[in-house]
Design a protein around this nucleic acid. Structure first.
Length: 498
RNA sequence: GGCCCCAUGGUGUAACCGGUUAACACGCAGCCCUCUCAAGGCUGAGAGCGGGGGUUCGAGUCCCCCUGGGGCUACCA
């Protein structure tokens, strides 16, 4: 299905001005830093990249940005990969897979950055800077106090070739600084449209630290360029970084990718989404029994819409319907209530067998001793009974507790149902009917009706005593399903209990 | 402070190049279905499109200003 070309779709076509599009195969990347868990914002960025790649038969690259050695951990990286896999966002190149543009961890690409930086110095687009951090800091403070823009003053740019050579030879430590051209920068962003920065907004900035480690903005450009990324789809927080990156691209004489800056996800109070707003970790949602298809569906609609009323999507439908041009500009509030609802709709779409598979471990954890929970037929029936009641898998034990365990009336209302006149005759009649049928759902319902007829009970008077006697509760799933699940022996046991 | 981005009901979104009573979904209320609870169906309340100026016969949609929120401003990513 082709989506019609709207106002914003047209913005896509501006890509023609850039060098790296049309003929080249589409290549996108998700580049998280392994300094924590995968949060929903990152997941949504990854999803948009993945959808775009899959839709266009492109390549989805996963790159680990771990140049901050202090904060990056292996566990964090593993968690990231695990959660991405859980969401079904498989990558074509990256950790665990490899690919022609590796390595895919920045910590393993140090030589590449060094080479690139030296090349820029040789070309005169960057220069060594010997200024000690403390002095720079002091100058910055002073300028700030006076309310002036605090840009690097260019001290080391004016150094003579000989002096530079001498100081390097003498082992002096130095950073590498970009020479920022006196030229305004322009970005045609696929989502934000035309964005520009005045030249004087930016001073010469560092691309290699004096300890030899590259700086983020530099790595990104070197890697995206090296990995032949055609579309950089990333968070809004990188929009202003693009100014520096544009300058680096130009200095390196590398073709530009297209950029698409996606807005942030906010918490209920419209501030940046954080732990205090509730669960933000994708891994936690997995543990809590959300479905990846529910999560993906929900995330896709946070900032994107096909332009119609459709809200419930399968993965394939998302791949088919997605377009960068229809991503909105404004930040979106993460609404866990709607996520739960949406997850529920996806649970209802599952086959009872599939739901049984998913819910089995949760139930077994709640009742490790219950033998019935290893019987697929039993689980399937349990799933049937749960299906309209679950929003999240982990609710299953609570919902099933009274059915599985039975028990005395839970409150006065339930107790009252057991005192309806003639209930003992009803139990007996019902058990009698049950005893002579072939155990099938329709037959169970027939038996229920027949017992009602025999004892002149119907409606509440018929169902409630049996329901309460069986489960101790006057609310719950369809009574026929409960009886089918429990089986004749168990039903008999519970109904005969005095 | 400087620069950049954003702004439709409580929330997510829709409203094609400006032109019907601003639509859909979540949530909320009610009704129907029903043994109950859900699910499902239906109905309703809820925004006049952050505020103010323009442009126009006509603006949520274009322009300007303001306000609010967010981001960047580092030898963090």
């Amino acid at each position: 299905m082709r989506s019609r070309v709207g106002k914003r779709d047209r913005a896509n076509l501006h890509g023609g001005e850039h060098h790296l599009t049309m003929s080249a195969k589409i290549r996108v990347r998700f580049a998280p830093s392994p300094t924590g868990y995968l949060h929903v914002g990152g997941a949504r960025t990854a999803l948009f990249n993945w959808l775009f790649a899959r839709q266009n038969g492109g390549v989805f690259v996963l790159r680990i940005e771990d140049t901050d050695l202090d904060r990056s951990t292996a566990e964090s990286e593993e968690g990231l990969l695990r959660d991405l896999r859980w969401l079904g966002l498989d990558w074509d190149e990256g950790p665990g897979i490899g690919g022609p543009h590796g390595p895919y961890r920045q910590s393993q690409r140090l030589e590449i950055y060094k080479k690139a930086a030296h090349l820029l110095v040789e070309k005169g687009r960057a220069y060594p800077c010997f200024c000690p951090e403390e002095i720079l800091e002091a100058k910055r403070r002073k300028a700030e106090a006076e309310g002036l823009p605090h840009h690097y003053d260019g001290t080391c740019k004016r150094l003579s070739r000989e002096e530079v050579k001498r100081r390097i030879a003498s082992g002096e430590q130095y950073a590498v600084r970009m020479t920022v051209p006196r030229k305004d920068a322009v970005l045609e962003d696929l989502i934000r449209g035309h964005v520009e920065w005045k030249a004087e907004t930016l001073g010469d900035f560092i691309i290699m630290r004096s300890n030899g480690m590259p700086v983020y903005n530099f790595c990104v450009v070197v890697d995206d360029s090296d990995m032949e990324i055609t579309h950089v789809i990333r968070g809004d927080d990188h929009l202003t970084n693009t100014h520096r990156q544009l300058i680096i691209y130009e200095a390196m004489e590398k073709p530009l990718p297209l950029f698409a800056h996606v807005s942030m996800i906010l918490g209920s109070d419209k501030t940046k989404l954080s732990k205090r707003h509730g669960t933000t970790s994708v891994g936690q949602y997995a543990i809590d029994g959300y479905l990846p298809e529910g999560m993906v569906n929900f995330l896709a609609l946070l900032g994107w819409s096909e332009g119609n009323d459709k809200e419930l999507y399968t993965r394939d439908e998302l791949v088919a319907g997605f377009s960068l041009g229809r991503i909105g500009k404004s930040a979106a509030v993460f609404d866990p209530v709607k996520l739960s609802w949406m997850n529920g709709t996806h649970i209802r779409q599952l086959s009872p067998e599939r739901l049984a598979e998913l819910v089995a471990p949760v139930l077994r954890q709640a009742w490790p001793q219950d033998q019935r929970l290893s019987d697929p037929a039993f689980l399937s029936k349990a799933a049937l009974l749960l299906q309209n009641h679950l929003e999240v898998l982990k609710e299953a034990p609570t919902l099933l507790a009274t059915t599985l365990q039975g028990g005395p009336p839970e409150n006065d209302e339930a107790a009252a149902a057991l005192k309806f006149p003639g209930v003992d005759a009803l139990y007996a009649a019902f058990l009698d009917e049950l005893g002579r049928i072939e155990w099938k759902r329709e037959a169970i319902n027939e038996a229920l009706k027949a017992a009602g007829k025999k004892t002149s009970m119907k409606g509440k008077g018929l169902f409630m005593p049996i329901r309460v006697k069986l489960t101790g509760n006057c609310h719950g799933p369809d009574l026929g399903l409960i009886i089918d699940l429990l089986g004749l022996e168990e039903v008999r046991r519970r109904l005969e209990l005095v």
